[in-house]
């Protein structure tokens, strides 16, 4: 029933979970990504945040930043939802579902640092947030173009050689995922990781890189 048309790219299908037309599946490639997302979500749940050390330069003084309990719980919640979105995003078999989850990852990434009281971090989170908003345009635009030109949204149908996806859709999809948390964001994204709360802040990087890995696989297969 479900045959991945191009197994030489990501390997044979190992398992699948059907949700109507949206079928989640594990191939060796997506399984690796899934396990990694799972590991880091577990780390975010289990480990306590670090106490960031600030040095007062010019003297021997230093102090550690404690994260208030309430803020820590909020950050943890956001990191976990980001992890869940990533886990779903790397295994989904539907292009629209993928774009939705990518948008969710973008929002969660801002949520992780939204509670930090640091003007520098918040300034950058604001810019990154605007970028994530703009990023939804190419992202959903790509999904819409793919639906219009191929008539389907299921990745397995799109991966078959008979279906050709226009280059513009592929390019927009990549730039959309990049906008939700990747390359041109390096200024703002690098700065927002200055926020304290290591296992949660790390999730920003984990989620966006894993989504990027998945989109690379998708556009090569299409």
């Amino acid at each position: 029933m479900y045959n991945l048309p191009s197994p030489q790219i990501e390997g044979e299908i190992l398992a699948y979970i059907p949700f109507g037309d949206i079928v989640y599946y594990f191939s060796p490639y997506t399984l690796v990504l899934f396990i990694f997302a799972l590991t880091f979500t577990a780390l975010a749940i289990l480990s306590r945040p670090e106490k960031q050390v600030d040095i007062a330069f010019g003297g021997d003084a230093y102090y550690t930043k404690e994260i208030p309990e309430k803020q820590m719980r909020f950050q943890r919640f956001m990191a976990i939802s980001c992890g869940l979105a990533t886990m779903a995003g790397v295994t989904t078999g539907d292009i629209f579902n993928f774009t939705l989850l990518t948008a969710m990852v973008g929002i969660c990434n801002i949520g992780i640092v939204a509670s930090v009281k640091n003007k520098h971090v918040l300034d950058n989170a604001y810019e990154y947030g605007i970028l994530a908003m703009i990023g939804t345009l190419p992202l959903f635009g790509a999904a819409a173009i793919i639906l219009a030109t191929t008539g389907t949204l299921s990745l397995w149908e799109i991966f078959t050689p008979a279906v050709s996806v226009p280059v513009i859709a592929k390019a927009l999809l990549v730039i959309g995922v990049i906008g939700e948390g990747m390359a041109p964001v390096y200024v703002a994204k690098a700065e927002i990781t200055r926020a304290p709360g290591a296992p949660y802040v790390l999730m920003i990087h984990v989620s966006s890189l894993l989504m990027f890995l998945r989109v690379v696989e998708i556009i090569i297969s299409m």
Partner: peptide, 12 residues
Amino acid sequence: LILFAIFLLHKI
């Protein structure tokens, strides 16, 4: 592609 993924995981 998996090797590529592992390189990225290394960045993480």
